[in-house]
Design a protein around this nucleic acid. Sequence first.
DNA 1: CGGCTGATTGAAATGCATCAAACAAAGTGG
DNA 2: CCACTTTGTTTGATGCATTTCAATCAGCCG
Lengths: 235, 235
Amino acid sequence: MNKNNNTLTEDVSLTGFRFFQSLTEDEMKSLNNEKVCSAYKKGSVLYKEGSRLTGFYCITRGIVKIYKTGNDGKEQIIRFAKKGDIIAYRSLLSQESACTSAKTIEEATLCHIPYKTLLSLIERNWKFSLAMLKIVCAELKEANDYITDIAQKTVRERLAEVLLLLKQEFDLDSEKTLQISLTREELANMVGTATESIIRLLSEFKQDKLIDLQGRKIRIINLPALTKVANLAKY
Amino acid sequence: MNKNNNTLTEDVSLTGFRFFQSLTEDEMKSLNNEKVCSAYKKGSVLYKEGSRLTGFYCITRGIVKIYKTGNDGKEQIIRFAKKGDIIAYRSLLSQESACTSAKTIEEATLCHIPYKTLLSLIERNWKFSLAMLKIVCAELKEANDYITDIAQKTVRERLAEVLLLLKQEFDLDSEKTLQISLTREELANMVGTATESIIRLLSEFKQDKLIDLQGRKIRIINLPALTKVANLAKY
DNA sequence: CGGCTGATTGAAATGCATCAAACAAAGTGG
DNA sequence: CCACTTTGTTTGATGCATTTCAATCAGCCG
């Protein structure tokens, strides 16, 4: 069985997605024509570091993990992308090989948008360019914040912060459970530490009644205290 | 004495700067009209985290340190910008407060380009937008690489890498001396470690005949070995 | 000449990684 | 459906890189 299988789905429309809201009706029509949407199983690799890409993706369902592989083979998670997010645009715009890899961590649907389409949008619609610039700038800000955190905070603080970040991005359900399921190793690869450290800290957090654990389910039961542990910036 | 003094200089022209090469003659003329160039003394603060900016800067002389201040007050250096580089564009494009601070580490000249001018270039010249996108994407790639390094490498490896990065960006003179003068603390704030660690590692590097030290002057005398210590990626 | 900032060295404390081993869960194949 | 393999989780013990604290020293400037 090929784990990276993907099957064409019924034609999803990109109309209504915030990122494309500056498009004219005509541009939207072309976009919907030129994109190709596919469903991917959990664990599918969309692209790998070093590969040349022919377009970027817009996620319409599921969660995608964006990561880099360090020299010793250890993966560093850069971010998670979800419905409405676009990925793989950086290497495309720079016309370079990908500097990250992307893998679905649950079943997902993605629309592939060819480079040519992207370029023609940039040429014809400055509002789209501006929207794109804002997206990249937002990601750059995140990255800069992350650099400062990893460089200056303890693993404990960073784990608390990552949990808050995941809460913000993926929300909690009615029982305060994080709506994203990660392995301990993936948490470690976000925080930038060893898997064992994550496990030990999670059980400490549980003992301190900050969170509750049931397998991979993480319930946040004391948000203010967790925020305090994260030692966040003031502004 | 006001350390942040700056004096208007003779009108520097931005014609010929790579970043603006896509501009038409007319656009270039407007740009040169609307920009305001000033000379700054060493140590001048250009802007601080949280401040609202009215434009971005293009550096025509000198070196500028871009940094964030962590919660405990410790500074994390994000990058150094030099002649031809643009700074402060991120918060401008995102229309947010600055998330970094900028300070000259030597005497410098910077041209301030108003937000209106930037926006009008984006509206009228898609090639400029694309150039801008490429700049932001390049910085994003650097940031992502940096995250992975800080998260996975030892302080020793990171210091070696930072020295190589500085060599690449600021070159060596005829005597293989790094053409940028940093305090130990600044090196520490780049690497993300304690000042004392930098001092100890630098003297180790010196003992191992990788570098030579004379005050703040750093001579790189064994580049291959230093590269090996840095444990760089293969591609 | 003080006074200040930056550099250096030493000693002690510690946070975190690493290694090892056992366990649990989940998927696979006979 | 059960044995088996694989993958992920957990806990303990140990070692080490790095931080922190403290004190001294060097250089620079008004």
